[in-house]
């Protein structure tokens, strides 16, 4: 399968009054063409920072470094500003968490849908509009022609997110980053939007990085999953393997937090992982999850675990020597 995105050791830090906040601490990500990769993790673990770094949308004061950040063979970090603009928007696009505020209130939807493709692909206004209408229709927006002349405030949140999805597809990108696109929506609409993204992703063969804090969502749409904790990937596997055979104590903890239809009785107590996320300012000593981990041993406080293959396969990797070791003992 063709690799569209290959990121090695991505680090993002932000200066704060209390010191350097290291929001992303060495992340490796691979995304194949047409694949749905879910990044899952608690609030504040650096999911948005990662996606903004990939898009090149972080504020100037943020410091971004990586060993490699290859997009379809191009090194994103060495591109000029102009080349980066060309890639962003045309070949990779983004859907944001906040549908209510992500559209410019002063311009019509048609204007905002079309401006990217007119700039990048030099198509005529009419062609751009035609594509916008087609995609709005595909995104389930009723009366697509009429919408082109409407303003964002005339639409509900769910519809605006559909418009954002259509917008992200305008230039036929190879990669879409969707940062919690359903979090701000009603539960029923969440399910519709989720289904829509999955459908369109498969229909157009677009690779998607789908960011969420909800493993339930992951179970429904992901091909592969990366579980993030405190700025690092702690476990990555195919969706199937992750749910069937979770290794990292954090992943297991998250899995205990989601209700399983049929198994979890209505009203019964759902577990949540006790404890708080460590501060991301400065260095972390030992395993970042140590203070909340029920499997930790004395060693965990001192040694920072690295991401290791599980069962000798790079398809399933875990950042926890205890989990890997205990498995080895069992064999």
């Amino acid at each position: 399968m063709k690799r569209i995105l290959d990121v090695k050791n991505l680090q993002v830090s932000l200066p704060t009054p209390n010191g350097n906040l290291r929001a992303v601490r060495g992340i490796d990500l691979q995304v194949n063409k047409g694949e749905m990769l879910c990044i899952v993790g608690e609030s504040g673990c650096g999911k948005s920072m990662t996606s903004m770094a990939l898009m090149g949308l972080l504020p100037k004061r943020a410091e971004v470094t990586a060993e490699a950040m290859h997009f379809d063979g191009m090194d994103l970090l060495s591109l000029s500003k102009k080349e980066r603009n060309q890639v962003r928007g045309m070949r990779m696009s983004m859907i944001f968490q906040e549908p209510m505020t992500s559209l410019n209130p002063s311009y019509t939807l048609g204007n905002q849908l079309c401006e990217g493709i007119i700039k990048h692909k030099k198509v005529s206004k009419d062609e751009a509009k035609k594509r916008a209408v087609y995609l709005l229709e595909r995104a389930g927006v009723p009366y697509p022609e009429k919408r082109l002349d409407q303003y964002p405030h005339q639409l509900s949140g769910g519809l605006r997110q559909r418009v954002m999805i259509a917008m992200a597809l305008m230039c036929e990108p190879d990669l879409i980053i969707a940062d919690e696109p359903t979090t701000a929506l009603d539960v029923t609409i969440q399910a519709q939007i989720l289904r829509l993204i999955r459908e369109l992703q498969q229909e157009f063969g677009t690779a998607v990085i789908f960011i969420t804090h909800d493993l339930g969502v992951v179970a429904r749409i992901a091909d592969r999953v990366a579980v993030m904790y405190a700025g690092q990937v702690v476990e990555t596997a195919s969706a199937q393997d992750l749910f069937a055979d979770p290794q990292h104590p954090y992943t297991k903890g998250l899995l205990n937090c989601i209700p399983i239809p049929g198994k979890t009785l209505p009203g019964s107590h759902l577990e949540s992982i006790p404890g708080v996320v460590p501060s991301l300012i400065g260095e972390l000593k030992g395993c970042a999850f140590e203070n909340r981990c029920n499997a930790s041993t004395g060693e965990c406080c001192y040694r920072s675990p690295s991401l290791e293959n599980h069962l000798g396969s790079a398809a399933h990797q875990v950042r926890c020597p205890i989990a890997t070791a205990s498995f080895q003992e069992a064999v």
């Binding site: 898009m55 949308l57 980066r84 603009n85 060309q86 890639v87 962003r88 928007g89 045309m90 696009s93 983004m94 944001f96 906040e98 505020t101 992500s102 559209l103 410019n104 209130p105 311009y107 905002q112 401006e115 990217g116 700039k119 990048h120 954002m164 917008m167």
Partner: peptide, 22 residues
């Protein structure tokens, strides 16, 4: 600092379009 400027940037528009238009 608003979300829609982030959206405009994510579309890969020129900085001048982002500032003067959006």
């Amino acid at each position: 600092n608003s979300d829609y400027i982030r959206t405009a940037r994510s579309k890969g528009l020129n900085e001048s379009t982002v500032i003067f238009k959006h």
